[in-house]
Computed example of a mutant assay.
Amino acid sequence: MAVKRILVIDDHPLFREGIKTIIRRNTAFEVVGEAGSAQEGLREAMRLRPDLAVVDISLPDKSGIQLVREMIAALSGIRIIMVSMHSKVDYVAEAFQAGATGYVTKESASENLLTGLLAVARGESFLDPSLSREVAMRLLDVSGHKRQAGGESGGQAAYDTLTPREREVMRLVCEGMFTKEIADVLSISIKTVEHHRASIMKKLGLQNTVELVRYAVKIGLID
């Protein structure tokens, strides 16, 4: 296998250094660039045209999931593995739906990142072993014990009616972001955020942010 050129995108310099150290253990890979934000990451990807990219979901200026969509659209053939502190199934499912081909938690990066990169470089998909079963249940919808939110919501089935963008907005709302902050992170207008929030509330049968957060906890979207 020819040496694969890798771009690392994460907003924490120390973690980027750790990722680069792990990657350099295998001569099949070469780190050709790094970035600390989505905007810088896309710019470097366009300039360097790497074979692979390691991307964090939580970036300061934009969701890493949105960045994946943009990179896939702009660069034919690039393959992306996400390394994130988030282990919730929904984050993983959205990452793959956006076009990522691998997902590793930061907690297990030292053990699993190289394995994941090798798999992705071969054209395969890779899931952190600790997540595989949960993600399969979520993506294939074969869980025999779907979580029910009860009371103010229609459970997991209602959540499944949300669009990918609505899920992004919902997650950011539940993380405590204000409307303007969400608009800035997702590069959309305040009016569009408000429209998505109204749609989310209607689809889930909720009345306010407190109920939304409670619902998110009950379906396992947040802790």
Results as ranks from 00 to 15, higher is better:
110 S>G: 04
105 T>D: 05
186 L>Q: 06
107 E>Q: 12
179 T>H: 07
112 N>W: 08
166 E>A: 08
148 Q>K: 15
146 K>S: 12
111 E>M: 14
120 V>P: 08
173 V>R: 14
130 S>H: 12
138 R>F: 09
189 S>P: 08
169 V>I: 14
106 K>E: 11
112 N>V: 01
128 D>Y: 00
178 F>Q: 15
141 D>I: 01
129 P>Q: 06
138 R>Q: 14
114 L>R: 02
126 F>I: 04
168 E>Y: 01
109 A>R: 08
131 L>P: 02
108 S>K: 11
106 K>D: 01
140 L>Y: 03
151 G>Y: 10
172 L>P: 02
112 N>I: 00
137 M>I: 07
145 H>V: 14
119 A>N: 05
115 T>A: 13
161 T>R: 14
112 N>L: 02
111 E>D: 14
145 H>Q: 12
145 H>N: 13
152 E>L: 10
119 A>R: 10
127 L>E: 01
155 G>Q: 09
145 H>R: 15
184 D>M: 09
151 G>K: 13
127 L>N: 07
176 G>I: 04
122 R>G: 08
107 E>V: 11
146 K>Q: 11
176 G>N: 02
113 L>W: 04
106 K>A: 07
128 D>H: 04
162 L>F: 01
126 F>P: 02
166 E>C: 06
118 L>R: 10
141 D>L: 09
130 S>F: 05
135 V>Y: 15
119 A>I: 02
113 L>C: 06
182 I>A: 08
129 P>Y: 03
107 E>N: 07
187 S>E: 11
128 D>Q: 03
139 L>R: 14
122 R>P: 00
172 L>K: 07
115 T>P: 02
163 T>I: 00
185 V>R: 15
137 M>F: 12
105 T>R: 09
178 F>E: 14
162 L>D: 06
131 L>H: 01
112 N>H: 14
169 V>P: 00
169 V>R: 09
147 R>M: 11
151 G>H: 12
115 T>I: 11
141 D>M: 09
127 L>D: 03
114 L>I: 15
105 T>L: 08
129 P>T: 10
154 G>M: 04
153 S>F: 09
115 T>E: 13
185 V>N: 13
179 T>V: 15
151 G>F: 11
122 R>T: 03
119 A>Q: 07
121 A>Q: 08
112 N>S: 01
151 G>A: 13
188 I>L: 06
164 P>A: 01
105 T>W: 10
168 E>D: 13
153 S>A: 15
124 E>P: 08
158 A>P: 03
133 R>Q: 13
131 L>E: 02
109 A>E: 03
162 L>A: 03
149 A>S: 13
183 A>V: 11
116 G>Q: 06
130 S>V: 09
134 E>Y: 12
119 A>M: 04
116 G>S: 05
188 I>R: 05
125 S>A: 12
150 G>A: 14
148 Q>G: 09
116 G>E: 09
183 A>R: 04
181 E>W: 06
159 Y>P: 00
141 D>H: 12
170 M>T: 15
